[in-house]
Write a protein that binds this DNA or RNA. Structure first.
Lengths: 229, 229
DNA sequence: TAGATTGTTAATCGATTAACAATC
DNA sequence: TAGATTGTTAATCGATTAACAATC
């Protein structure tokens, strides 16, 4: 996926430069989509804490995104806020979900039932955003058949069948480095287009597949840089 | 931390527009620092796999950053590559470490000895970049005193003392939402300036402290958007 | 009304890219 | 030499920001 493939989200403007239709533009730019997802994360947490409205300034404090940019990003899709008050948390959550087209449910397969796999399976991070872990795989015969929460750990040999039956869109790799590439290839063969890689391996996939590699250390490295300077 | 605080890394150029000194510029821009950290992550993995040289195009495939941009980012600090060949993996790792000033060791404290905490403690992600988990805390009396790897789980009551003794720079929260804010405040009081939040809570801290909130679901949301459109 | 905060403009700055000479 | 890839330029495009009128 290259940035040049992506139209700017303001491309839907009328020829006279009038405000864009409050409907859906062609396609979001990479940056806008990333920021919207970020706002959504904070809004979801704020909702859990009982917050009813939130200002662009508060959102800014939690997301590190400039408040003007937040208002700008949002106003491209409609007038969601109330002057003098802020944005309704509930309303904004559903608006952004609609924009990101993640209003529905999406199914995930998880690989690896070690500590990390179990942490992911029992966490709310994915569930809060409509991602449901519907299958857990492991290669350890001792683990296969035992349960993690409500899910039985399955044999990776049955991967393709399960992915079709359960309509799985995303594969999450929480496995040792040595196993990552092999599983990624099985996932690609089974038609999965998005892979989340929590392993240490460099995973190679065909261009139509997106691999996202987890990077806590990367974030830490550069937080530290600004702390040290 | 605001973007406007940060000088562009090309600010160190001579007045005649000549190539910048291969020394250290004033301060990296947010974007450059983030990308350098990303290159470092891939380079570290490539090194583990025995790769000796890497081209900007290969780096591009793994980082999703345009290859011209990679060459540009790097050439701002010196001529690290060999035309027709690429970059020496080892050499580039140490150059970037020098630029990011993360050549040394930094100590981390980990909070929460559940599945996620254990996964973090036993992972190489941090260790590979010079971050060492030197203390693990939990509030569960049953866990305190037991071991995770070589480390004994400590009582969070002794936090301040341990942080001073062990020279801890970063606190990582792998705890339930309810505990996150309280621990963050203790960390701030103990002088920690960087907090990594893996919990579901919105953590509020003074402006001089940086909180980085883990966001696998955010990344997933926007990967999915580009898959759906 | 007075205070707060949105929506929007206009100006600036940095990121991105194609293209290509230099050179390994 | 021939092929590959860097280092660098120049042009473009998007992100960022301050500022402020509109309005709740």
């Amino acid at each position: 996926m290259s940035v040049s493939d992506l139209a700017n989200h303001r491309g839907a403007e009328g020829p006279d430069g009038a405000a864009p239709e409050p409907g859906m533009p062609e396609r979001l730019s990479l940056g806008v989509a990333a920021r919207l997802a970020r706002y959504l994360q904070v809004l979801t947490k704020a909702k859990k804490e009982g917050k009813e409205t939130i200002s662009s300034q508060e959102l800014s404090a939690f997301t590190q995104v400039n408040s003007t940019q937040i208002r700008r990003d949002l106003s491209g899709f409609g007038k969601f806020g109330k002057r003098g008050v802020g944005y309704n948390v509930d309303g904004l959550v559903s608006q952004i979900r609609k924009i990101l087209r993640t209003a529905g449910q999406h199914n995930i397969a998880l690989f690896g039932a070690g500590h990390l796999g179990r942490a992911i399976a029992s966490s709310d991070v994915f569930a809060d955003h409509g991602f449901r872990v519907v299958a857990i795989f492991d290669t350890d015969p001792e683990k296969i058949g035992t349960k993690v929460g409500a899910l039985e750990i399955r044999d990776a040999a049955n991967l393709k069948q399960v992915i079709e039956d359960e309509d799985i869109v995303v594969g999450v790799l929480a496995v040792p480095s040595a196993a990552a590439q092999g599983l990624a290839e099985l996932l690609v063969k089974a038609g999965v287009k998005i892979i989340f890689n929590y392993s240490e391996a460099l995973v190679r996939v065909p261009p139509e597949v997106t691999v996202h590699t987890s990077s806590p250390a990367v974030d830490l490295l550069y937080a530290l840089y600004f702390y040290l300077t």
